[in-house]
Design a protein around this nucleic acid. Sequence first.
DNA 1: TTGAAAGCGCTAACAG
DNA 2: CTGTTAGCGCTTTCAA
Lengths: 365, 365
Amino acid sequence: MTDQSDALGRGPTIYDVARAAGVAASTVSRAFSRPGRVRSETAERIRRVAAELGYHAHPIARAAPTGRTSMVALVISDITNPFSNQIIHGAHVAAVEAGYSLLLADAQESGLREREVLERVMPTVDGVVLATSRMPDAAIRTIAKQRPLIVLNRTIADVPCIVTDNPRGMRRAVEHLAALGHQRISYAAGPEASWADGIRWRSLRAAATELGLHVRRIGPGEPTISGGAVAATELLRHPTSAVIAYNDLVAIGLMQALTARGVAVPRDVSVVGFDNVYAAELVTPALTTVAAPLHAMGLTAVRNLLAVVRGAKPHALEPVMLPSRLVVRASTSHLRRNRTSPAWATRRVSGSSAKSSSLTVSGSR
Amino acid sequence: MTDQSDALGRGPTIYDVARAAGVAASTVSRAFSRPGRVRSETAERIRRVAAELGYHAHPIARAAPTGRTSMVALVISDITNPFSNQIIHGAHVAAVEAGYSLLLADAQESGLREREVLERVMPTVDGVVLATSRMPDAAIRTIAKQRPLIVLNRTIADVPCIVTDNPRGMRRAVEHLAALGHQRISYAAGPEASWADGIRWRSLRAAATELGLHVRRIGPGEPTISGGAVAATELLRHPTSAVIAYNDLVAIGLMQALTARGVAVPRDVSVVGFDNVYAAELVTPALTTVAAPLHAMGLTAVRNLLAVVRGAKPHALEPVMLPSRLVVRASTSHLRRNRTSPAWATRRVSGSSAKSSSLTVSGSR
DNA sequence: TTGAAAGCGCTAACAG
DNA sequence: CTGTTAGCGCTTTCAA
């Protein structure tokens, strides 16, 4: 290859600096290398010269021999979800603060897409964050063998994870509802492949059992507003006075659909969401929700990832647990007295509670 | 360098394939090269062998000699803004459909950050999309000289741009308000460095002049909910019966602050936003807004960018203009009869309209 | 069409 | 601490 068009752009190269400073190229390289950043006089001069010339080591040329690209990938199950915004933001902040760039990839709620996109992206990054992954555990473990990996919002043995305290958050929500006098709670589930959905449902059951409440599961459904609308229809068939939704979007969709059919929130039904998305406090009624520290999650995910990249042992056993808290707003209120079953539950006899078989949770991921 | 640890990961290389197929490395390379994808029998065999071995050309190794990375950068003024979501999504779709990856960078509403982040990112991408850039024209032109560039939501001579039809959208909004009987409109401005803010304000003035309405400018302010709250205070000092906000967030903040002070929307004030963000239809009252085709913008931005990357002439002169439309919802209503000035405007005499000097627009970017 | 060889810009042994 | 020398894995001339 005699004449290499203009391969990597036309900035000054390490050789230009070397010539201008009267040293060997490797010396220049060293003057910029990792630890200590050589303090000799020559090194100083080289750096001055480099600065004058406007020299910057080309990231790709650097990546070729080292394999390090100073990029991390953030793979997210659904960019569209407002949930993603803050995670992305947090991740970006952490990346930039460490001199890294962020490669963003959307899995479109599909484990397959996720695989594909990862295949494309993996060789070009130093590590990857899998946010709310829809892939099976095995696939994730495979990834972990190839690149430093952090999993967000899910736990997998031997893979460093970051999760929020779903059990505690759910517990708070249930206690809140119980304190308001609610006895029967429906859970509007999310996607089947969602780990969060699994643990939320299990936590709900656990909390309900302890507090002596009845629970019922609706779904699975899409983690969106329209998913919430679907859940509403189902709820109307087996009414309860309170609903906890897989996430805020579902909760909002639920409230809208309920309201549209003349069922008032919170008068007739109390609704609780998860995540504390931006819109949660904008809707009417403002949504009571279990807030996840979304921004912090993205932030610590990338920070921890970079720690691993730099050689830290992924103390894989204990997943990092970030706190979640209940934000009480207007979508929950006291159960109306003098009635066991909700006032609007006319189309269904309320005699016995939902058949207990509905308590069975099919898969738990 | 005798032993290069495991430089670019440990997949099979082109040499492995070459050996397995009994040909030279260059032949393998050719079997995968761009046009025609050589149809010889050898080439076929090579591809079979490669598939069996699970060979994939390493993107970085490929980038070294060619300079092409199959990545594009999307630089966004503020990831946090829900506005960004759909743009990012559209951009991602277009990138993936072309086999590209998306490097996401947040400028945090600062021209400086934008520069910095661009410096980091430029050498590693084949092109960049600047969404709602806060940099001065000159800086952008400099970028354009180094990499294929598309600018979103802004026009710059000799740089390919994509914008929405702000004038038309604003015109529709004003007509709508006029039809409802409003005579005086306030504009709650956005950031000074925003090109969109400039054109929106100018379009508003133009439309108002034609329709014989009075307009007044509040701001500049932050393009956020709290920015809207600030604008509300100012509005209360010089009340008008209608407000058009720089964007939906400002509009929402405005509505909230107004409501909090007992000024009802739309009864006392009609409010119009821009963008048609997700939350616009979630708030109460649902927001009347000038909808921008956010997703389409991100999509066509990246598509056009890739066309340029592939060698298409950037027909830079005519900016691509995407349509915008008025979405009428609940935040606008008829001016209440029998009063020239809004009912709640007690603290201010309404005799003469705002002093005309307030009509002056300082800078228009 | 094919193979040989040079080189993208940088890093990492290895002697001196 | 510095210079020398091999490459990272791929592409692209050039001659056969």
